[in-house]
């Protein structure tokens, strides 16, 4: 049993939440294998990182140091993972199911010629690994067996609760300098552009008022905007509404849109297709407003009003103003 190797990311000098979740699953796997948990970090983070990782049970830390690695370069990261694998022969490489996690792990899998299981929620060691992973954004689970030395696994975001280790503590730091070819540095961030979007992003809004095909046209979103404004929230949309050209894609909630987690999601004229629901399953409450009492969203939500949104939404706005 050599080790389980985890890729981790940082946000503003702190271990990213999704990396904490990935580390929790990686540690569980290391415990099952009775193997040490190792982590690799690429960013020039301060000393804190070591403490944070240790509290998650990491005992070996590989700090990647290379004078040409001053920006995010996914092939260089994949090359590094490849070289660490060659040197240490881990049982598994675990990454967060984030954009960068998948960007790097997919490339590493290609280089290593091994399978990769994306968005795992559970892993059991045995004859190979038995994984439970998400399909269709989690509206379907796949149980599968993955062999490969190592097995490459990403961890679905916000599905495994992050838990620090009971006996986390000491950690040994190693500096690791990969051998990089020019081609490994061909793809890298050239610059960052800041967006000039104003207002609360959908992902962070406490209240989202969503409008679907039932809204009927772009003008009537005004009614939804008004209600959202009153509640300090923001407006979202279904893919049907975006496809009609009523709202920009940035407003789309769902599998190929934003994943929201507001205190309340008010879904107006939205039927509740699985691809929409996976985007709002993080909502603490769903209030559906729909003319069809049989609509699927009525089964998924906490509250419902049966009726025409064009009458119900302004009535709610009115009632709040009066109240």
């Amino acid at each position: 049993m050599t080790m389980v190797l985890a890729l981790v990311e940082h946000e503003e000098g702190r271990l990213a939440e999704t990396s904490q979740q990935a580390l929790t699953l990686a540690r569980d796997l290391a415990d099952q294998e009775d193997a040490p948990l190792a982590a690799v970090v690429f960013e020039d983070d301060d000393e804190q990182v070591g403490f944070e990782l240790a509290s998650y049970g990491v005992t070996e830390l590989y700090r990647v140091e290379h004078d040409r690695l001053d920006r995010y370069a996914p092939d260089a990261r994949a090359a590094t993972v490849h070289q660490l694998v060659d040197e240490h022969d881990p049982e598994a490489v675990v990454a967060p199911g984030s954009d960068r996690g998948h960007d790097v792990l997919g490339r590493a899998a290609a280089r290593l010629g091994v399978p990769m299981a994306a968005n795992c929620v559970e892993v059991t060691a045995g004859d190979g690994y038995e994984v439970t992973r998400h399909r269709w954004g989690g509206s379907l689970l796949e149980h599968a067996r993955i062999d490969g030395s190592p097995a490459l696994l990403s961890v679905a975001q916000h599905e495994v609760a992050a838990e620090e280790a009971e006996d986390g503590g000491s950690l040994t730091e190693h500096s690791f300098t990969p051998t990089l070819a020019d081609s490994d540095l061909l793809v890298g961030i050239d610059r960052i552009e800041e967006s000039d979007e104003e207002g609360v992003p959908l992902e962070e809004a406490r209240v989202v008022v969503g409008g679907g095909r039932g809204v009927g046209g772009p003008e009537d979103y005004d009614k939804l905007e008004e209600l959202a404004d009153l509640l300090g929230g923001t407006v979202g949309a279904s893919r049907a509404a975006v496809n009609e050209g009523w709202r920009p894609h940035d407003d789309q909630v769902g599998l190929t849109g934003a994943k929201i987690s507001p205190d309340v999601y008010i879904a107006c004229g939205i039927s509740g297709a699985v691809q929409h629901m996976v985007g709002c399953k993080g909502a603490k409450n769903i209030l559906a407003i729909n003319t069809d009492p049989e609509a699927a969203i009525m089964e998924n939500g906490e509250y419902a009003v049966v009726g025409d949104l064009h009458e119900v939404v302004p009535a709610i706005t009115e009632a709040i103003r009066e109240g």
Partner: peptide, 10 residues
């Protein structure tokens, strides 16, 4: 190549 085998869907 190396195995990745579906057991079942749920």
């Amino acid at each position: 190549g190396p195995t990745f085998e579906r057991i079942r869907l749920e």
